[in-house]
Simulated scan of single mutants.
Amino acid sequence: MAFSSAQLRLMSDLKAIRQEPPEGCSASPVNDDSLFVWSATIFGPDETPWEGGIFSLQLSFSERYPEKPPKVRFISEVFHPNVYRDGTLCMDIIQEAWSPCHNVSTILTSIQSLLTDANPSSPANPEAAEMYLNDRRTFNRIVRRCAQKSLEAPV
């Protein structure tokens, strides 16, 4: 059976993330039949309002990967300036700043750092951005609630 270049690259990404998983992140294909849909988990970074949370994501790859980035969406509820209400992520490395040198590990690591270093100047969620900038206490309280909720949701 011949594999497409996208499948070969996804197999390489899978091998890399299994051999050297990034701190606080994991990912693998949802099922053995397809390499194109992955589920991922990101642990909320320590000493942040996200701490203790276990956030689920879905990564959807196309046959054009790695030329085109995957679509990345939080399955867990997340209140963040750079996450749309439907969980879709607004992040430069999976949009205009995408490069084929990125892989699943670098994407997840970037998402994890975005949790603590939001970019409120390019908001996907204007309410969260406004709160992040002007009412960090309330923002952090909502984030803590999301982190708690992420532990209750079925994984």
Rank of each mutant, 00 (worst) to 15 (best):
T41P: 00
L115I: 04
A97R: 13
W98G: 04
S99V: 02
F74W: 04
V37E: 15
T109E: 09
S60H: 11
S39C: 09
Q58W: 01
E63C: 02
I111D: 01
R73V: 08
L115E: 02
M91W: 05
F55Q: 03
L108R: 08
P81G: 11
L115W: 08
H102D: 00
R85M: 10
E51D: 14
L108D: 04
I94P: 04
R73E: 08
V104C: 13
E63I: 00
C101M: 06
E67Q: 09
K71E: 08
E47K: 14
E67M: 07
S121N: 14
P45G: 15
P100Q: 12
I111Y: 03
S105M: 05
P81C: 10
S99L: 05
L114F: 05
I42V: 15
S113I: 03
S113C: 06
V78I: 14
F43Y: 09
P45Q: 13
F55W: 12
L108W: 11
A40I: 10
N103G: 13
Y84R: 13
P100G: 07
P45K: 14
R64N: 04
F74S: 03
I94K: 10
P69H: 07
T41L: 15
N82S: 06
P66D: 01
V83H: 03
A40M: 12
R85Q: 13
P69N: 05
F55C: 06
Q95M: 09
V104Y: 10
C101S: 08
S76E: 05
M91A: 07
P81D: 03
I75M: 10
L89M: 09
K71Y: 07
S56R: 15
F79K: 08
L115H: 05
V83C: 06
Q112W: 05
H102G: 00
R73D: 00
E67N: 07
P66T: 03
A97Y: 04
S122V: 14
G53Q: 09
H80Q: 07
S76Q: 07
Q95E: 09
R85D: 13
P70K: 08
I42C: 13
